[in-house]
Amino acid sequence: MEKFTTHTGVGVPLRRSDVDTDQIIPAEYLKRVTRTGFEDGLFAAWRNDPSFVLNNPVYAEGSVLVAGPNFGTGSSREHAVWALQNYGFKAVLSPRFGDIFRGNSGKAGLLAGTVDEKVVQRLWDHLDENPGATVTVDLESRTVRAGDGPDAIEDSFDIDDYTRWRLLEGLDDIGITLGHEADIAAYEANRPSWKAATLPAS
């Protein structure tokens, strides 16, 4: 996984709440067996609407998505994270995320930062007034910044310490866990024999 320290890119205002993962990528796109190429399915239904934000060429290079509360609820499909990443997004900001989506983001290297609802509103207004403006997401200081001068926006975002550390270091979770092999083996040795198994004992 690539290290994530700070990112500055075009902010995309998605003025919607309860954006579930079926909206991020519909099930018909989930038949592939790869991790790439899902950008064509990103917000597929909304992309047919000419007024949808991503259909504005000014956001073609969008990389910081600013969404309403309850972003990424519903299905566990990590394809939703991949579709955002395949399109070019590096970070998503929302006042509240679906748990599984937030977890998937951390694993796949997409920064999901929780920000205050008022900050989302200010970012939306700023991005609508200045289409194509950039937003900076600084993971080291957990800060989001946009604009300059007296109206500049600077506020904090939340991300759990462990995910932050892993993103900053670009660490692979499985590698970390396999470092605890002895703990896992010790646990396995003490599991009761009546515990369910899908295959006969070998």
Partner: peptide, 21 residues
């Protein structure tokens, strides 16, 4: 019992464990 993403599926396949807050 809960749902997980594909990265976590890989993690469980490889380690039979999951880091969880």
């Amino acid at each position: 019992a809960h749902g997980i993403g594909t990265s976590e599926v890989e993690h469980v396949l490889a380690t039979q464990t999951l880091p969880q807050a």
